[in-house]
Design a binder for these strands. Sequence first.
DNA 1: GTACTGTTTGGAAGCGCTTGCAGTTGTGAG
DNA 2: CTCACAACTGCAAGCGCTTCCAAACAGTAC
Lengths: 340, 340
Amino acid sequence: MTGIKDVAERSGLSVATVSRALSGKGNVSPASRERARAAAAELGFVLSYHASSLASGRTHNVGLVVPSVHRWFYSAVIEGASAALLSAGYDLTLYNIGEDPQHRHSVFNDFLLRKRVDAVIAVSLELSEDEMQQLLAVHRPIVGIGGPLPGASTIRIDDSAIAQQATNHLIGLGHTKIAHMTGEEAYDQDFQLPGTRRGGFEKAMNDADCQVRPEWIASADFTIEGAYAAARQLLGGAPERPTAVFAASDEMAIGTILAARDFGLRIPEDLSVIGIDGHDLGKVMGLTTIDQDAKGQGALAVRTLLGAINNGLDLVPADTEHPTKLVVRSSTAVPRSDAA
Amino acid sequence: MTGIKDVAERSGLSVATVSRALSGKGNVSPASRERARAAAAELGFVLSYHASSLASGRTHNVGLVVPSVHRWFYSAVIEGASAALLSAGYDLTLYNIGEDPQHRHSVFNDFLLRKRVDAVIAVSLELSEDEMQQLLAVHRPIVGIGGPLPGASTIRIDDSAIAQQATNHLIGLGHTKIAHMTGEEAYDQDFQLPGTRRGGFEKAMNDADCQVRPEWIASADFTIEGAYAAARQLLGGAPERPTAVFAASDEMAIGTILAARDFGLRIPEDLSVIGIDGHDLGKVMGLTTIDQDAKGQGALAVRTLLGAINNGLDLVPADTEHPTKLVVRSSTAVPRSDAA
DNA sequence: GTACTGTTTGGAAGCGCTTGCAGTTGTGAG
DNA sequence: CTCACAACTGCAAGCGCTTCCAAACAGTAC
């Protein structure tokens, strides 16, 4: 294998100068830089990643820990982070911890500790005291997206406020009989999110003197499939039917719409539905939603981390609130007068 | 930072023995192994990834190159590969090349060449002569999933056969007026797949003496949204309407179903729809499909690679055909007699 | 011309492990 | 009791870079 020595020889420079020329750091005269580059190109030489990392202590690699790769929010975050990292010359190591507790354990107790990454992004993960300690011990910047991460920086949206905003959108249209599709806490790794959104819903309802009916609180696992099943219960069983549903995620809103169609309910005439996310399918489904720009959150997390890495300063834990935007489409409307 | 030396000191063993004990390679007496482990645990020591990699030449890291992270097939492959790698103690570095040709270029000309990975998996990617050369030059096993990859091993399904199977399922039910939703070649990184499936469709139609009508060949970009738009054209415009649609992917089949509903068409009474994939949403939508077990393909790719890595032998290019399975749900049925 | 500052350079010491080699010990066979 | 052989262990030489340091070299101001 050709090494940096070969490049040095071929270019008539020292190994040290070639290293500086190729990495772009340190002072190198333009002429030497060019000679080094040329020699490297001729030899098809590329710096060895591990040797560089070992010598410099920088890995140019960021770990991204997600609970799953299927749910829309996660894949959007991955996409945003991936693009930002690629542009910056960083690798993205994906840790998809999934359902298997064994996997989760090995990720936190083994993989992340081996100093392979310069920083880690944890998405919608509530870490145990222990896991957090482990991570902080390796002394790498951490940022959390969408999950509470005491001791680390987080990027979050104001879940309570947007839940209120979504609910108020329905109330503003004249709805009073509003159901809520919330997340099953056990199914989510971020235990606080469903509760916070639900709290926002209830606050908005109370503020508007609308009754929150327990039988109109359905819960599902944040997937289209799960919400579909839950919505069939909600819409099929009850003696009285709500005129609107606020779902805690777009995927659950979509599941609700699919279930409503099965019952012959027209959207929005018979049922208004609003979600939260900004899911790609929203456009096709005509879904009114609160767009939280998940891609942007991923990219922002990367910018935050790289800033910290490059400034060498420890990332001071800080919460950044990411902006959201109400997008009104055709799934919400004034309730039919006979139903209101 | 505590290093292996500290562990050696604390355990009273030499650095070499500790290394062997911790990595599990070489002969170490059970007693020493235990002492080394204990000392490491007490110190909270974990081997440095880069130092190990540099010294041993093994990275314990596999690169996964995907065109996108959003389409169902890719995320399923990622999930399958991720779980398999995690269990084996390997990292997964994700290269999501997306739409940006600049990203694609840097992945192939920079990232993958820096010897950071022991092997690479390329999903649905047709590589240029050049890119292939680059990859082969770093001398790492490569396996391709779903894309033609001359010179590397591939895992593939028999696209022509399953397209025929899907079409024959419709024909068997009595349909003769069958439309096909194919992929836009330009939108896919794997240029052969849409054509192959379409070819299978046409062959089955011809074999059954059914006419393939050009106006009943619609094309979309493999997404639900794209297929939705294309299906609106297909189902809304033509003077005569097909009684069944074979879509080249489940996402496009779902888009077709959504569009059909907009026109008040009932599934399957007015329109039968069949797809290919095994998409999670299939169950909710009642979609008949040919399940290609994408997760399994990802896991198989990993097994293939790890086998090659551990045997030290070069991966002899070989194509493995992955099994598929027709899953009949409620989106296909005998055509209405007045429409047939 | 000298003294001084700032830029380029090369030498060489690591970064923290793995592993070939040789030495040590323990075992069973002869 | 000796010898051959296997199982263990430690030494030390790397793996292929980065970067500290000091030396060499301008360039400027006096």
